[in-house]
Write a protein that binds this DNA or RNA. Structure first.
Lengths: 209, 209
DNA sequence: TCACAAAGTGGCACTCAGTGCCATAAACTG
DNA sequence: CAGTTTATGGCACTGAGTGCCACTTTGTGA
């Protein structure tokens, strides 16, 4: 028989992230361990066949512990996308205020892409995984849609459209869409590199209509 | 012990849809029955608490049969969104070829919205449900992203950008984004009506940059 | 009209996702 | 070092999703 004594939902998204205590470092370590184990399995056997059981085993933790770090396999994905968006936002905010705001946004997105490309796992394979599965693609789009408010805020801070929040939201969303479409083009055509595709998309956005 | 004799995955998306046979009519009837039962439950108890068990019972079919019509609860949602996109595409294709292509696209989207607003279930409540849950929102965004190729094709057919498919894809995606953003604004601000918001978003898109 | 084929339905069993609960282990505090 | 706090693992349970099979309904041809 199952007893329910609390209504509050488990929200592992709330990261400690405060100080650099042993506990905190361990937490980050385990989290990274799980992430790595997961992506390794995703890329080798596919998303669906990578059971949480197997991911946990590979990461050296119990199945139960997995869920203390991530709500689901999908959340693993959106966590990566969220990080990506955070980096873009940070880079954007650091651009000089004298620069054209859209130029700054575009450069921020490009900078983080280029950084990512030379750095980590096989980005193209990860992207392929995402584009295939509706669930994953949906999570990806959702996570990217979460960038909108924060990017919009920075646009407003730079007095774009006199700080009209709704219009800044739209502009931020349009840039995200161009960004995403460029990724799609790049995935479909392995020829040109991602940077070129993104630049083209941004140019076409600015020349729109 | 479970035995697997076939590799092919179950794909209930493949609708018969051919003739008006008894079988076919019955199929559509049951499908609609399930859809209605599902939305009724979604709106009353929420998406998560509406178990497939309960939906099936309300629709008068077995749990197993539910999965012969829909892959999941989420798919129920994307089916609605897909229908919506189909209607937009159809309406778009019927606009005179002499008309400005983007004008035609905008009018098609507006027409289908207006049709929907006066017609069916509580669209605003449904939208609210979708905007709350990341899973649902993701499915929604995915389903909407599926509009892009078909709308892009119609743009290309109308010789927009000399039929450059990549650029037409981007343009279609931008219109979808404006469409979505307008819905979000509308959901956040119950004041103005949806049509106004969508028109505003389209105007701002065309005046972009 | 009737027998046979084709397709739909329900029930059962099974795997996997996700979560509450509790006992235990590890890290922090004074 | 003792006591508190937090992380972990294990267990049990609900719900999603699917293969399989028996049974029913619909379609078809003689």
């Amino acid at each position: 028989m199952q007893k329910i004594n609390s209504i509050a939902v488990e929200v592992p998204v709330a990261e400690p992230e405060d100080n650099g205590s042993l506990r905190e470092r361990k937490h980050q370590l385990v989290r990274r361990e799980i992430e790595d184990a997961a992506w390794e399995l995703f890329l080798s056997v596919g998303f669906d066949k990578a059971t949480i059981e197997a991911i946990s085993r590979n990461a050296g933790v119990s199945r139960r512990t997995f869920f203390r770090y991530f709500q689901s396999k999908e959340e693993l994905l959106s966590a990566s996308v969220r990080d990506f968006g955070d980096r873009i936002a940070q880079c954007f905010a650091q651009k000089p205020r004298t620069m054209d705001a859209f130029q700054a946004l575009a450069e921020a997105m490009l900078a983080v892409i280029c950084e990512e490309m030379k750095d980590e796992h096989q980005p193209r394979e990860m992207l392929g995984l995402i584009f295939e599965d509706p669930n994953l693609r949906g999570r990806f789009l959702w996570a990217m849609s979460q960038w909108v408010p924060v990017l919009s805020q920075e646009l407003a801070r730079r007095k774009v459209y006199r700080g009209d929040p709704a219009r800044c939201d739209l502009a931020a969303a349009l840039y995200c869409t161009a960004f995403d479409q460029a990724h799609m083009q790049w995935f479909r055509e392995p020829g040109r590199d991602l940077e070129t595709q993104v630049k083209r998309a941004f140019r076409q956005l600015r020349e729109f209509s």
